[in-house]
Design a binder for these strands. Structure first.
Length: 621
DNA sequence: ATAGGGTTAG
């Protein structure tokens, strides 16, 4: 317990120590009396002055001089002094592991406390492997680890990504009977989660006798990493009904992320209310997460309301708002927000520029985009990363400059990833560039990253050119290479629950009604001039069920479900994990007029807002 | 005589 105010005591006592260092002090007791005289008014009589001094020192040179003092007075091997000294030098703020490991190796018989300090410090350093090695050395020298040792060394294993090491530790925890320590088990959950052993992580949670808030939070993060986003939302209710924990701000942060991913506006609003009730809505990080959630749910007014209400906005808040405006199709407003941000004196970072550049690409602002791309490194000293290049490639690709985009990718200092090639492939699809499309597919294959969707794009290019021979070839290629077509999935939120649909889905409990509704919608839309595009955009690769496959795309099923289950005039919000196709785009556009409903579809790239037969994005792409 | 652990916004 630090019963003293560290600044003044350490300085005055230290001055004394330094002055005494010059004089040869060979009597320890004499030394201590001096300390007591100088610091006694600052702490209780029982506290050792030298220990207090070590603990409260806020300057590294002072600590090193204390080290010299310990050696001079043969106190170095005394754990009373050595432990706090090691603690001070090894852990932050000083965190000098080179120095710490040297003094540690000179200490004759370290006990579990001192090992713990070192292992913990290694876990926080950039050489966490040493922590694990020290743990093994500790076992060899016969020192028994305690619960904390396991916790610290598990962190080391998480950092170095050692599955085997962690498993060993888990076994040892069971052997030593430390499995009742909830905090330790929480660390262990994180370990399994970071090694993608989600089942194991959940098992640890299940076996916990008492689960506090943080244990639940870690479980939510496990679900999120495992992409079980929907189940993560379900945990909120389970947490509420559990009496020994309460959802805190961290819970809300993660849930808001989950809502953003799922387009779960109603649930997001519920979390927002919870934040208000508990006073979390004043915190900057919560507000920033709210801005993102509302923008990703296509609700810009709400996002802006939160943004406006913030007393203080940092670069994250501005970037969230700029990206939200960008992805919802308000490119010019995003740029305006960017200028405003600089006016009020917040400096942009790399992610801000990702937002600004994506604003340009989503709104087709070619010149502005190039201008920002150049000024980014010249004026702001931010070198472009893969995301920035991706936006520019998208921008040029949409403008038809596919070859220039290809050259830009090849000239990058960073290694091109699958996403950027895929962006270019999308552009090839718009501009019917079959040859370049083939080259891009090859690049994706080199990266071992080719997906069914990529081949489908290539397929689209050939079929739009009427090159049926090549279409057959691609199909064969996919078959030979064992490319699985993962069906696209659309989700819609209804009464606080997320409903999932894939094409030709028959799993929904109300499937009969949904298909009937869809048939009726199709009839109504046909009267209004809707013609299904059956050739160019065939996502399903099967040969026989072309028309059927197309008329029951996942987004159409989701829309039909919404028409069926919500009163007339209600907005329809659909999230889709892949791109929306031309046919479904037309479908939604005409439906928005015929049924007088606002339709918001978020696909993997952007939002499509449909109102009164028009789309917020100029056209399909 | 005995310090100390887990989740988290763009």
């Amino acid at each position: 317990m630090r019963a003293i105010s560290p600044q003044c005591s350490s300085v005055s006592a230290f001055r004394w120590l330094s002055s005494q260092a010059a004089v040869r002090v060979d009597n320890h007791r004499q030394c201590l009396t001096g300390f007591t005289n100088h610091t006694s008014h600052l702490h209780t009589e029982k506290t050792e002055p030298l220990i207090s001094l070590i603990k409260s020192t806020s300057s590294k040179p002072h600590l090193l001089q204390i080290h010299a003092h310990l050696i001079r007075n043969s106190l170095f091997q005394d754990p009373i002094y050595f432990s706090p000294f090691l603690f001070g030098i090894a852990l932050p703020p000083f965190h000098d592991l080179g120095y710490a490991s040297q003094v540690f190796s000179k200490f004759r018989k370290p006990d579990v406390f001192q090992y713990n300090i070192m292992i913990r410090a290694y876990g926080m350093s950039d050489s966490p492997g040493n922590g694990f090695m020290l743990y093994q050395e500790m076992l060899r020298s016969g020192v028994s680890p305690n619960s904390l040792t396991s916790s610290f060394v598990t962190n080391c294993c998480i950092k170095i990504g050692s599955l085997f090491g962690g498993l060993q530790i888990h076994a040892r925890i069971l052997r030593d009977g430390h499995q009742s320590d909830g905090r330790l088990l929480t660390t262990l959950m994180d370990f399994y989660s970071s090694n993608e052993k989600y089942t194991e992580a959940c098992k640890v949670f299940d076996e916990m006798s008492h689960r506090d808030t943080i244990a639940w939070n870690v479980l939510i993060s496990v679900y999120m990493r495992n992409r079980r986003t929907r189940d993560a939302l379900g945990l909120f209710d389970m947490m509420q009904s559990s009496y020994d924990c309460q959802s805190d701000d961290v819970t809300c942060l993660m849930l808001l992320q989950a809502c953003a991913n799922l387009n779960a506006l109603a649930f997001g609003e519920r979390v927002h209310r919870y934040c208000e009730e508990h006073g979390f809505d004043k915190a900057m990080n919560i507000c920033n997460a709210l801005i993102t959630m509302y923008s990703r749910c296509g609700c810009l007014e709400k996002a802006f309301e939160v943004f406006k209400g913030m007393t203080e906005k940092d670069v994250v808040s501005w970037t969230a708002m700029i990206s939200g405006l960008a992805s919802n199709g308000y490119g010019r407003d995003a740029i305006e927000a960017f200028r405003e941000m600089q006016r009020v004196g917040v400096s942009p970072d790399d992610q801000t520029f990702t937002g600004v550049l994506s604003a340009c690409s989503h709104s087709g602002l070619l010149d502005e985009g190039r201008m920002f791309f150049n000024s980014m490194s010249k004026e702001f000293g931010i070198s472009p990363n893969i995301h920035h290049y991706g936006c520019v490639v998208d921008l040029m690709g949409r403008a038809g400059m596919v070859d220039e985009a290809y050259n830009l990718i090849n000239s990058m200092k960073v290694k091109p990833d699958a996403t950027i090639w895929r962006t270019l492939l999308g552009a090839c699809r718009i501009h019917h560039q079959a040859e370049l499309g083939e080259q891009v597919i090859e690049r994706l294959i080199e990266l071992k990253a080719q997906e069914a969707g990529d081949y489908v794009l290539l397929l689209n290019i050939y079929s739009s050119l009427g090159d049926w021979g090549k279409v057959v070839n691609v199909r064969k290629m996919m078959k030979d290479r064992g490319i699985q077509t993962n069906p696209a999935c659309s989700t819609i939120e209804f009464r606080g629950k997320i409903h999932e649909f894939v094409a030709n889905d028959f799993s929904h409990p109300r499937k009969t009604e949904i298909y009937e509704t869809l048939d009726e919608i199709n009839q109504q839309l046909r009267i209004a001039g809707y013609v299904a595009e059956t050739v160019a955009e065939l996502h399903n690769v099967g040969t026989e069920e072309k028309q059927i496959a197309l008329s029951y795309h996942s987004e159409k099923l989701a829309i039909a479900f919404a028409v069926l289950s919500t009163p007339p005039g209600t907005s329809i919000r659909v999230a889709k994990d892949l791109r929306i196709c031309v046919d479904c785009h037309n479908f939604a556009k005409i439906l928005s007029a015929v049924y007088s409903r606002e339709v918001v579809i978020r696909d993997r790239n952007r939002f499509h807002h449909f109102r009164e037969g028009r789309c917020s994005c100029n056209d399909y792409w």
